[in-house]
Nucleic acid binder design. Structure first.
Lengths: 234, 234
DNA sequence: CGTAGAATTCATCGTCTGATGAATTCCCGC
DNA sequence: GCGGGAATTCATCAGACGATGAATTCTACG
């Protein structure tokens, strides 16, 4: 009962490759998303993710290298915005903001999206890589595409303003849990927030002096051939 | 060169009380604010704050106890909102939102306020105590007072909505650094965001079905004697 | 002068963290 | 049936981190 077994061995599952094929890599990714979503980049620990996935911590590194690389891998957005664009851009033009808000709110409630959103937002406060992700989501993502397609001046500013309202909503509703926003239903919220997005995207922003100098982001001809409401391409 | 000096001694400044009176406590608080503002609650380290204040790490604990207590002590807001309220509430009623936005934006630029804001916002993503602070700032702070004083239904919802836009602005402009918001001047931003706040506070929120059930927060008679635009009391 | 108490530092402790390298076991192609 | 490569775990390392308790020095009060 003492020792002296040929190979070294201790407790729990013994070393070596496990039988069967149980998509361990995917389970680790899911665990990582959950952990990053719960505690942010710094707060989440690799040991905890490994435990959630029922796996040794070293395996996490084996698959994904460093923690930062794992974060990038885990936070890759599985959302095809281009596919949703027509449904948003179509319909009465004066309620575009409301449709966008409703779309985003529904997106956030999807179980495969929420951890990603929470992970990125929670981490963006302290981790530069996550901050860059969030910045890109706002400054180059679907909001800018939409704002650009609407063909009004100051597209970048409009996208950023709309984005700021959406980040704020995510923070208040999902991260910090401000009532009554946290327990409000999506439809009511979309009606309340919609006009804000609407105005940011197509409305009057006041005398935009000193703001409008958008230094031609990207060359013209970059995305301008996007026809909003047309799903037939791509 | 070995040892055997009477009292133990090593390097740097020797132990014992320092002469003179140089408000060490205050320097530690400032260092803590800077550190929390830069890296959030989890990211900031007591050793770093001590170094910034030119002081041993144990002294920080001596003065403030645990890290969490230090955080609470450091993030205490030195802003008298009640004093600023009349200037915001006074003036043309249809630009109340813009004045509030301008006030807040100016507040955030004050060197004694910015680290506090950044500290709370950065930490709220992961630390429950900080989250509670932020929640209270939004759900019980000046926004609610103002919304309540305006005497429209759904005051709590209105305050929370306005708060969400302001958090989002802080995140985008100060934390994540989304352009062109980050380098925009305050006046233009206030003009762009003002109407949003305005509508949230006094405008039409759409058919607020299922949202308006604000369960009488606080008893009536709590703050209702606040006369907006009247600075003469208190 | 002398002493109590406050301010300050020193020296650790225990714990957790990300990361690495070697060992072990399974699967698949030959 | 055997051998190489992939999957998995074990055992550690080195570096932080928060916290604590004792030692030292200064100030203030008697």
């Amino acid at each position: 009962m003492t020792a002296a077994r040929g190979p070294r061995r201790r407790a729990g599952r013994r070393a070596g490759r496990r039988p069967g094929a149980e998509d361990t890599r995917g389970r680790i990714l899911d665990a990582a998303r959950a952990a990053f979503g719960d505690r942010g980049f710094e707060g989440a620990t690799i040991r905890d993710m490994a435990a959630r996935a029922g796996v040794d911590a070293a395996l996490v590194h084996h698959y994904f290298g460093t923690k930062q690389q794992l974060f990038v891998a885990a936070m890759e957005m599985p959302v095809d915005f281009a596919a949703a664009m027509p449904a948003i851009a179509g319909g009465p033009a004066d309620r575009l903001g409301e449709r966008l808000a409703a779309f985003v709110l529904e997106l956030w409630d999807r179980p495969e999206v929420r951890p990603l959103l929470l992970g990125v937002v929670r981490s963006a406060s302290t981790d530069p890589v996550a901050a860059a992700m969030l910045r890109r989501m706002l400054a180059e993502g679907p909001l800018l595409i939409l704002a650009t397609a609407l063909d009004r001046p100051d597209a970048a500013l409009r996208a950023a303003l709309a984005g700021s309202q959406l980040i704020g909503l995510a923070m208040a509703r999902l991260v910090v849990g401000v009532e009554p926003l946290a327990s409000a239903d999506r439809e009511s919220l979309a009606r309340a927030v919609g006009p804000t997005i609407q105005r940011y995207l197509v409305g009057d922003l006041g005398d935009v002096g000193g703001l409008g100098d958008l230094e031609d982001l990207g060359d013209p001809g970059d995305a301008p051939d996007l026809r909003v409401g047309d799903a037939s391409r791509r």
